[in-house]
Design a protein around this nucleic acid. Structure first.
Length: 210
DNA sequence: AAAGCCCTCAACCGCATCCTG
DNA sequence: GCAGGATGCGGTTGAGGGCTT
């Protein structure tokens, strides 16, 4: 496509990071802080593209990461947040200090999906599979999720009514503004747009752009 | 003990959105 | 208001390790 590549692929390493690369990245960020990912690799003496450095730092090297050891509470929270937000992994991660969007996404796909299926729940709609199927003259896969199925882009969520819990992440441990302790009928609690039978999360804007 | 299969997770890719001039 | 660049996000892939046969 017409986009310029994010970096010169010919001169960048790919694949797994070596310890030395990690050390360089950590050292550089400790010394200079995050930011300007595009120029960071050169400045740090890394043959990586900025994106790759950012990802490595965010998902693996950051000192405040927990990594692994998801508790049942974490599971339940993720499930509830997913019911509310859909595949907005970064927002979900924001409610779980020390977790990254990538980690949660992986954990969802490998563990929680299965957990929900075992419970007879549809991981997309968060409804009982039979009900979800029945409810769909709609196809199962597009059965209306209980979260806004064509949610506003993440950034716009900042303007959404539940934005308050996003910004509250830091000060309060978890979702003080969401009634996550209840077995919510989430479809009732959503402040956002009325449910549409729209494609799931990310696909939204695509249709009217490009 | 070996081979094949399955699962997990780190990393990449492409697109969307934000930011700046 | 527009264009281009930078950053962030979500989907997907592939390597490696563990498990099963």
């Amino acid at each position: 496509m017409g986009r310029s590549p994010c970096c010169e692929k010919a001169h960048t390493n790919k694949g797994a990071w070596t310890k030395e690369e990690d050390q360089r990245l950590i050292g550089y960020i400790k010394a200079h802080g995050e930011g300007c990912w595009r120029s960071l690799p050169k400045a740090a003496g890394l043959l990586r593209c900025g994106k790759s450095c950012r990802l490595r730092w965010m998902n693996y090297l950051r000192p405040d990461l927990k990594r692994g050891n998801f508790t049942d509470d974490d599971d339940e929270l993720i499930i509830k947040l997913h019911a509310l937000l859909g595949n907005k992994w970064s927002l979900i991660a924001g409610q779980l200090p020390g977790r990254t969007d990538n980690e949660i996404k992986n954990y969802w796909n490998t563990h929680i999906k299965r957990k929900l299926l075992n419970r007879g729940m549809d991981p997309h709609t968060h409804r009982p599979i039979s009900a979800a199927a029945a409810a769909s003259g709609l196809t199962t896969s597009t059965a209306a999720p209980v979260f806004p199925s064509s949610p506003a882009p993440a950034s716009r969520l900042a303007n959404a009514p539940f934005a308050s819990f996003q910004s509250s992440t830091v000060s309060a441990p978890r979702c003080p503004d969401l009634n996550l302790d209840l077995d919510l009928d989430l479809s009732m609690s959503l402040p956002c747009s009325p449910p549409k039978t729209a494609p799931p999360a990310k696909s939204t804007p695509t249709s009217h752009q490009q």
